[in-house]
Amino acid sequence: MKSLLKIASLLLLLTIGGSTQAQTATEVAALKRELAKYKAADKLVQEHLKTFDTLDYTVFSNQQWARMHESHGKDIKVFWPDGHITTGLATHIEDMKALFVYAPDCRIKHHPIRMGSGDLTAVSGVFEGTFTKPMPIGNGKFIQPTGKKFNFPMATIGVWKDGVMVEEHLFWDNKAFMDQIGLGK
């Protein structure tokens, strides 16, 4: 971003003050091309971030799984906070659906930090919900709901290619989550 501001400032100075011997028309044209590259790269990052906002605020929070392809590649690789890694959009959707089994009101409605560079984006958010339904733990066993709310920070780093994420790295504190829903300590 500093480079972009430096280029823009130099272009402004050249436009206002005219060229000196060292600042030829060729140099100005080169700077304009460089500025155009930065603008195009920033535009792409902003598009990815807008797509990600829609993913969390609308698609995830409202369980619109049929729209997941708008932000995720079919062979997406997802790195979860508990250490497991999945490959494929269908598997990722099933993992996300599992969150709503015991907390049907799961949602992410804020991204206080949104940034990116090139094919990478990073957002932070607040993951919220209430543990109101039995939580499956395998072998036909369940943990009964505590009725407790959860509200904790999360972050996602996305790797983008051709307009969709091909990798998604999810981060949150599972201990804080367990403590908040009454299963920690």
Rank of each mutant, 00 (worst) to 15 (best):
F79N: 01
T24A: 09
K161G: 05
K39T: 08
T91F: 02
V166S: 05
L14D: 10
E167S: 10
I157W: 05
N151Y: 06
M165I: 08
G73T: 01
D119F: 02
K149G: 05
M68P: 01
M178T: 15
F127Y: 15
I181A: 06
D119S: 12
K109Y: 05
K43H: 11
F52Y: 13
M96K: 03
V78E: 00
Y38P: 00
F100A: 04
A122R: 07
H48M: 04
H110T: 10
D95Y: 11
L55T: 04
I76M: 13
G18S: 10
T86E: 14
G158D: 03
D119Q: 14
G129H: 06
F131N: 04
M178N: 12
R33I: 05
N151H: 15
T26R: 08
F177V: 02
S71M: 01
A30N: 14
G17L: 14
S19Y: 05
N62M: 04
Y57F: 15
E94T: 09
L35K: 10
C106A: 07
K148L: 11
L14A: 07
E70Q: 13
H72N: 08
K77N: 00
G184E: 08
D95H: 12
S117N: 10
L55D: 00
T156V: 12
F52I: 00
V78C: 06
I143N: 06
L5I: 09
E167P: 12
P153C: 06
G184I: 15
D179R: 08
E70L: 14
T130I: 11
W80T: 02
K109C: 02
L44V: 06
M115V: 07
G163P: 07
P81E: 08
A40F: 04
A36Y: 08
I76Y: 01
G73P: 07
D82Q: 09
K149H: 12
L14R: 12
A122W: 05
W160R: 00
C106P: 06
I7L: 09
P136W: 11
K50V: 00
Q46N: 15
A41Q: 13
L35P: 00
F100Q: 08
G163R: 06
T54E: 15
A30G: 07
D53F: 03
P112I: 08
K32P: 01
Q144P: 05
K37C: 03
G163H: 12
F150E: 12
I76Q: 03
D119I: 10
W172H: 15
K109S: 13
G73C: 04
L120K: 15
V45A: 07
T87G: 05
N139V: 03
I113Y: 09
M135Y: 02
L13A: 11
L44G: 00
